[in-house]
Design a binder for these strands. Structure first.
Lengths: 135, 135
DNA sequence: CCTTTTGTAACCATTATAGTTACTAATAAG
DNA sequence: CTTATTAGTAACTATAATGGTTACAAAAGG
């Protein structure tokens, strides 16, 4: 399975989208997630690089870089998840065997098709769809 | 990402489906995958428990338990993969925060829906669809 | 100038996968 | 019945990814 990075990132972005007058620091966000501030900063760093949030030292997070309706779960997923392949394929098979020779090239497009479906579903949900559950 | 267990299992089942006169032992199968016989036996054990293959000591694998057209990739996936959840969700969130209180119940059905799509796509492909690539 | 907070580096613990050795028990076949 | 072969499994190791932690440098608002 994929890591909880997507889930935690959605949590972070929801807090930012809903923020009121709190100073939104990694410390504050971490207390809602119940984890370590450094873990939050690591994800925030990637979310910033993907142009999803705005932040600065001294002030912490100042807000989203785009409207919540314009941020999809796929944007978040691509920003924080490194290992995006859905299924791993074993390599170094024995190419003298007809199955060993073609298994990788047979499975790759098949898995790619399934993954495309997953990413389309992630792209169909926006941060606004999530945050409306918290209001 | 999911482990290579599905890919390796498809490899094993393809060899069985295509077998000619070879005695199909874990040793022989491992040489096509280029891995260890014990790893093959571990997967075979689960495939047998899921009623996908027939095997016995002394003879090794004697064949598929069903026609290739009746074995879907979902059958194989369910037989060999333990961690089937697509996305991990962080738990122990701070329930005093509105986001922390509802994040899990918000994401669970959403992820479930995406995973359902994945499993439907796996169910739409049979072992016969794979093996025809090797003939 | 000074205080706060991000942004990272450098660790450690835990878990899952993959690989390996070694053994038991089943069983086909002579 | 005996024997040789092989599945089945236990136990161990190596490796990699995740999650968590401490520590510190650099940015920047006031």
């Amino acid at each position: 399975m994929y890591s909880s990075k997507l889930s935690v990132s959605i949590h972070i972005l929801s807090l930012i989208a809903l923020k009121e007058d709190h100073p939104l620091t990694s410390e504050y966000i971490a207390s809602s997630i119940n984890t370590n501030p450094v873990l939050v900063r690591r994800l925030m760093s990637r979310l910033k690089r993907a142009d999803l949030i705005k932040s600065s030292t001294k002030l912490g997070v100042t807000g989203l870089a785009r409207a919540e309706e314009e941020i999809t779960l796929l944007d978040i997923f691509l920003a924080v998840e490194d290992n995006r392949e859905l299924f791993d394929i074993h390599s170094n098979t024995n190419h003298k065997c007809p199955v060993g020779a073609k298994i990788e090239s047979t499975l790759t497009p098949l898995y790619g098709n399934i993954q495309k479906g997953t990413e389309e579903k992630l792209a169909a949900v926006t941060l606004a769809d999530i945050t409306k559950e918290f209001k």
